[in-house]
Amino acid sequence: MIEIKEVEEPRRVPILGSVEGMFTVFKHLFGKPVTVQYPEKPSVLPDRFRFRIYLSTDDCVGCTLCEQVCPNLTITMVPLEKENQRNKRKIYPSVNFGTCTVCRNCEEICPTDAIYLKEVFETARTRNNFFYSPEDLEKHEAEVKR
């Protein structure tokens, strides 16, 4: 059974309707602008907003699950000499932020929660500097060389 509603044509008065529209537009002159003056007034981000990938190399076990689940080869495993008992193969994820779509699959699949995302989003940089080595992923955004 499909409930059908035949859409009625709204009633209108010729010419007066247009004037009413003009008045509606004019009324908004006294409203408050919705623009956020971003760099001066930082916008309030919701709790769940995520952008920048972080890595804790102490927890990483080098299972390559994040590399597998990454949809567009953003994450690649690179060798890194580091004292870590659990990471026998000594490989850690590196991230190319130029292609990251922030799908958060890597965060969800990580068995040890070594890879995680934070709300930092001011990661603008020049074209060839989007590549983050595992050490870069551990640092704060301000400390990473641009």
Binding site: E9, P10, R12, G17, S18, E20, G21, T24, V25
Partner: peptide, 14 residues
């Protein structure tokens, strides 16, 4: 409704 009226009450739009 405000936007709807801007559209459908305007003679030129009709």
């Amino acid at each position: 409704e405000e936007v709807f009226n801007l559209f459908v009450k305007n003679d030129i739009f009709i």
